[in-house]
């Protein structure tokens, strides 16, 4: 196996005068516009990739703000009502002494979404600029962001499950807060942002630098 650090060993489709379909992998001579196998639109590189990434990114960040400031859950127990935001719920868990669960919720609902935004911004800003970190590292960041994306929807599901489950009349009942909607939107926008990213751009920069 060749040394993966040396980009010059590899011939890309673009250098060979070909364009590959990102949906089905078929190769075509450069200039073909629609894939002959699956019908998807062909582009050697998605030149508008970064515009789309930033547009969805901004939408995601905007939706993330009300997700944190508005209540996620409305709890009613024996006549008393309380509303809790994402952070508020974590503080409450801390007061009850459940350090472990508070830590997990803090990590899953706040740290992971926030670092996803940072990671996508880091990748997008890195395109077209000289880089100190290797393409391999940035590629790994990209894979993690793509993988984690859909799992962030857990919070929205948990709120819905709790609402469906905890309907015990006057003893206890839980209702969803409006923050669940903005949280769900934020997750969806972030997924779209990551999907719009053309990963091949990361590797092009690597090659240009090597030569």
């Amino acid at each position: 196996m060749e040394n993966p650090g040396n980009a010059r060993n590899y011939l890309t489709a673009r250098e060979a005068g070909l364009v590959s379909c990102t949906t089905c992998g078929k190769l075509h001579p450069a200039g073909v516009k629609t894939c002959l196998r699956c019908g998807a639109t062909l582009a050697s590189r998605d030149t508008q990739s970064l515009q789309k990434v930033w547009a969805w990114w901004i939408a995601g960040v905007i939706a993330f703000i009300p997700a944190n400031t508005y209540p996620m859950l409305k709890t009613a127990t024996l006549g008393s009502q309380s509303e809790s935001t994402l952070l508020g719920g974590i503080v409450e868990l801390l007061h009850h002494g459940s350090l472990g669960i508070a830590g997990i919720v803090f990590f899953a609902s706040i740290v992971i979404p926030a670092s996803k935004f940072l990671a996508i911004a880091y990748l997008a800003l890195g395109i077209g600029r000289p880089h100190r970190s290797s393409a391999h590292l940035r590629h790994q960041v990209y894979e993690v962001v793509e993988f984690v994306g859909r799992w962030s929807m857990i919070d929205v599901f948990v709120v819905a499950i709790l609402t469906a489950l905890v309907q015990l009349g006057s003893a206890a009942s839980i209702h969803p807060g409006i923050a669940a909607v903005s949280f769900a939107l934020s997750v969806a926008f972030t997924m779209l942002s990551a999907q719009s990213f053309d990963a091949r751009l990361i590797w092009d920069a690597d090659k240009d630098q090597d030569q």
């Binding site: 489709a13 190769l27 990963a199």
Partner: peptide, 14 residues
Amino acid sequence: DLTDLVACPVCDTL
């Protein structure tokens, strides 16, 4: 013959 070739969707390497 392009049928045996495949480009990596992530980094475009043939």
